[in-house]
Amino acid sequence: MSRPRVSRRTVLVVGLLVSLLVAGVVSFYASSHPDGLEYVAEKAGFLDTARDSAAADSPLADYSVRGVEDERLSVGLSGVVGVVVMAVLSTGLFWLLRRREPRE
């Protein structure tokens, strides 16, 4: 009845590969239309109250790598770097927070 269990490592590896694929490749095909909030803000006439973020000079600002002209490469690289940063930061945080097994 029960199928062979997929190992946890497989789940993690597949999940990470999917994340890299989504951020590194699929992201290029994302819609460039304004998102719901931007659209509503524009229609309601307050989009121009938005100010540039203090991080606007970041080398990865707006999901593109400064200096990389090819847009597909630029978006994809920024996504891959973002995924690596996220994986390290969040897994590190959760690993530190986790409940340790009761000591023997």
């Binding site: 946890r8 789940v11 993690l12 999940g15 990470l16 999917v18 994340s19 890299l20 989504v22 951020a23 992201s27 994302a30 999901y63 978006v75 996504g79 973002g82 995924v83 996220m86 994986a87 969040s90 897994t91 590190g92 945080l93 959760f94 690993w95 927070l97 986790r98």
Partner: peptide, 16 residues
């Protein structure tokens, strides 16, 4: 804990 790290990472990717 590693699953939680993966979920955060996937959400970041999907939000792009």
């Amino acid at each position: 804990a590693p699953m939680a790290g993966l979920v955060a990472t996937f959400v970041f990717a999907a939000q792009m």
